[in-house]
């Protein structure tokens, strides 16, 4: 910000002051600016993914809407609230660190970590659900279900409150769920079929984009749905979903590591009104991760959900 003034006559070394700085003000300014620049690079890091999302969504809006509708928006919303609470406890941690209140700091850091863990737990639950239903976009990483085998023989996790779907237990009328090689499976074509039919009836309508009319059809312009081609586009949605939420979860895990260190420091009573910048910097990181989720939630879980009104 400014050229700093310093006097070499009276060098007063405060505790926690590193050798290259003249005073605590300069140190805090440097550290805080460094953290913000790091966050700026984080914005660009996630920004690359958001660009990929933007381009792919603009190419295949209906496939993304179908994929979005399949995610559990309730769990996503719950996770958003969990993160918001953890952001509040983090903000209060900084508040109490400035006051030098050790017990409140320790308690609030523990709470923040608990909410962070809750978030990861819910995320893990969601991932497992995707695994069980063949929605992980990489072949071989889904639960393997052989034709006509009883549920108990299936490899992999079955979530509480859910029975493993086997070929013999499938809903009447639906095709049995078989996935012997653990490949990506997609079974919901009602929405795109509906739009395709309308587009065929009204060739000048805007039910599908021009690109979609070409890329979902059996042959360009035929407006007859090719399920395999559509499935590939939904797979791209789930790929982006997993990369974005996975990278976000990785940031959460790193955040929990930082919190563990912070907890130890706070427990030792390191922070007070004079020296609390580690708490503040960790807080910035934690809030940033929260902000990323604030955008991921609507983009991945919510957009396209209004198609549910079609009752398909």
């Amino acid at each position: 910000m400014s050229a700093h003034s310093h006097s070499d006559k009276f060098v007063y070394h405060e505790p926690g002051l590193q050798h290259q700085f003249d005073d605590m003000g300069q140190q805090e300014e440097s550290v805080s600016l460094g953290m913000w620049l790091f966050l700026a690079q984080e914005i660009m890091f996630f920004g690359g993914l958001f660009t990929a999302y933007l381009v792919m969504r603009s190419k295949y809006p209906l496939a993304f809407a179908s994929g979005s509708n399949h995610l559990d928006a309730f769990l996503g919303g719950a996770n958003t609230l969990v993160l918001i609470v953890s952001s509040l406890t983090m903000a209060l941690t900084v508040y109490y660190a400035q006051k030098g209140n050790r017990n409140m700091q320790v308690g609030l850091i523990v709470l923040t970590m608990l909410f962070g863990l809750t978030f990861l737990g819910i995320k893990a639950y969601e991932y497992t659900d995707k695994y069980n239903h063949g929605l992980v976009p990489m072949a071989g990483l889904n639960r393997r279900v052989k034709a006509d085998s009883p549920a108990s023989e299936h490899v992999g996790l079955v979530l509480p409150g859910e029975t493993a779907v086997s070929a013999s237990e499938a809903k009447p009328g639906a095709e049995p769920y078989v996935n012997p090689h653990g490949e990506f499976q997609w079974r919901e074509y009602e929405l795109v079929q509906h739009m395709m039919d309308k587009q065929r009836a009204e060739p000048n309508g805007h039910y599908l984009t021009l690109n979609e009319q070409l890329t979902y059809s059996t042959s360009p312009g035929s407006l007859v749905l090719d399920k395999d081609k559509f499935r590939d586009k939904v797979r791209i949605f789930f790929y982006i979903y997993f990369v974005m939420t996975g990278l976000h979860a990785l940031h959460m895990i790193i955040g929990l590591g930082i919190m563990t260190w912070l907890l130890w420091m706070a427990f030792k009573g390191t922070f007070n009104a004079e020296y609390f910048s580690p708490v503040e910097m960790s807080g910035l990181y934690w809030h940033f991760v929260d902000i990323v989720w604030i955008f991921l939630f609507p983009l991945l879980y919510l957009l396209g959900r209004h198609y549910e009104h079609l009752g398909l």
Binding site: A3, S30, L33, G34, L37, F38
Partner: peptide, 15 residues
């Protein structure tokens, strides 16, 4: 890059 930006902003000598 982060280091240089911070340094140029906060570490300049008086004057």
């Amino acid at each position: 890059g982060v280091n240089f930006l911070v340094t140029i902003h906060t570490m300049r000598a008086p004057g």
